[in-house]
Nucleic acid binder design. Structure first.
Lengths: 107, 107
DNA sequence: TCAATCCATAGCCAAATAGTTATGAATTAC
DNA sequence: GTAATTCATAACTATTTGGCTATGGATTGA
């Protein structure tokens, strides 16, 4: 199995899947049928997308009779938020070091 | 051509590519040859990864004789940082609304 | 009970992806 | 001038991906 970050980034790299996740973030819990009605693709395709999002931890499902409700778990975005900030941080650090160097050279 | 967010997410969904980008963020500008020496894959494979990162705006290249230097542009991460924060925000908003509702019901 | 609804899974297909080797253009070194 | 180095591109391959239709289990409604 791929690492968590790859799973999350890959999940979000597909626009359809991102739209489904966004819908769940905006509107809260939704059934598969309702998500399908707005997605422009077949129900099995939506189910597969939901499966991918679930494997990445981005959504959870809840059974209720024959309905399956899905909801987003935005907390699962934390790993990529952290990683992204870390990358920006490395860059800042190198920039600071350069600034220091220039300052020292100036004296 | 896919939208910018898809390009960025897709670029970062591959661990090898993420490692290359991370290397450039940590260490700054590097040649293709040097990146290849640490990547564990062939030079053409590295070049292709760099091409993908470049198309997503995540890296820039600079020619110097027969050497090609690549450097990261972490500012290009902004779109997905914004999107991620927006998603978390929607969730917060719904949570606040629920809290309000509960408060009103309590009275 | 029988029909209808909801959704997950299976099986198929075309396109994209990540790797490879081979090659060639441009530059540098001898 | 010739050889060596650097890297991008081309051509190929195996795997993954995102869509589809078909199906069937579980639940609900008549």
């Amino acid at each position: 199995m791929p690492d968590t970050q790859s799973l999350i980034f890959k999940s979000l790299s597909d626009p359809t899947r991102r739209a489904i996740f966004e819908q769940l973030c905006r509107e809260g819990e939704q059934t598969v049928g309702f998500l399908t009605s707005g997605a422009g693709i077949s129900q099995p395709a939506v189910s597969k997308h939901l499966g991918v999002l679930k494997r990445a931890g981005l959504v959870r499902d809840r059974q209720e009779g024959r309905l399956t409700h899905y909801c987003a778990d935005p907390a699962a975005l934390a790993p990529i938020l952290d990683w992204t900030r870390e990358m920006a941080g490395f860059w800042e650090a190198r920039f600071d070091k350069l600034e220091d160097l220039l300052k020292r050279m100036d004296q």
